[in-house]
């Protein structure tokens, strides 16, 4: 029996009379790369915030690495990693300061911080850059550093919110190679993206429309089911039917 690190059952979030997330149910397996897609306004961010322990659901049930999304939100936050294009590193701190800052926030001991930061710098080949301000690094390096920092406390899951926006095509692909490596080591990857070619790199993909999950399967199977040749077309067919996503 494979270990389920995310379990979601009829999870719902309402804001007044607006239902942002409408009874979604799914499970994510340990080590899986799970793509979480949907149009702007479909409810992805709200759903993700609940899974990260940042927003309490209206109804339904969910657990993340065994912790309950109603009662154990602090435990969830300690045991997941999070990275987004918008929020990741402090531009006016140096590389090493950022690493130590995040490691400290996650409660690593001084000894662990020393070991982890040395290992991280070694792996990224950043020796000559550790005293540079993060703001002065090329975007591609920043992203690789942000990804590694989000994994510094060895979380079982990492949430990536549009991690590759705006980078060049080569860096975007190198970033996915880091995702594969993390997944091979057993880290579960929960990722949102607007690049439909990246949907193909996921083990399974869910597509949200108007607060509901309208499709969930391996990319190959979704394409077979909708009888199209690309994920772009699958997405288009599902999202075009959306009613409130455009508002």
């Amino acid at each position: 029996m494979e270990e389920q690190v995310i379990k979601v059952e009829k999870l719902t979030k309402r804001f007044g009379d607006f239902t942002a997330v409408d009874e979604i149910s799914f499970e994510v397996t340990k080590g899986e790369i799970f793509g979480f897609l949907g149009a702007n306004g479909a409810g992805k961010t709200t759903a993700m915030r609940m899974l990260c322990g940042l927003s309490i659901p209206t109804s339904g049930a969910a657990s993340v690495v065994g912790f309950d999304v109603y009662k154990q939100t602090e435990d969830i936050k300690k045991n997941i990693g999070y990275m987004s294009q918008r929020f990741s590193l402090y531009e006016d701190l140096s590389v090493i300061e950022n690493i130590k800052f995040y490691a400290g926030i996650y409660g690593l001991t001084n000894k662990q911080i020393k070991e982890k930061s040395e290992e991280l710098i070694e792996r990224l080949g950043l020796h000559s850059e550790i005293k540079k301000l993060v703001g002065a690094l090329p975007l591609g390096w920043k992203q690789k550093l942000a990804f590694s920092v989000a994994l510094i406390h060895s979380p079982q899951i990492i949430f990536l919110d549009e991690p590759t926006g705006g980078v060049d095509p080569v860096t975007r692909r190198q970033f996915w190679e880091m995702i594969y490596e993390a997944s091979a080591k057993g880290v579960t990857v929960f990722v949102t993206t607007h690049y439909m070619d990246e949907a193909e790199y996921c083990n399974r993909v869910s597509i949200m429309v108007d607060g509901r999950i309208e499709a969930l399967d391996a990319p190959r199977k979704l394409k077979e089911k909708f009888n199209v040749s690309s994920m772009d077309e699958v997405f288009y067919m599902l999202a075009r039917g959306a009613k409130k996503a455009v508002i």
């Binding site: 926006g165 705006g166 288009y236």
Partner: peptide
């Protein structure tokens, strides 16, 4: 169109 979903981009 940065950060805009594929359908709205089209």
């Amino acid at each position: 169109t940065t950060g805009v979903d594929p359908v709205s981009r089209k």
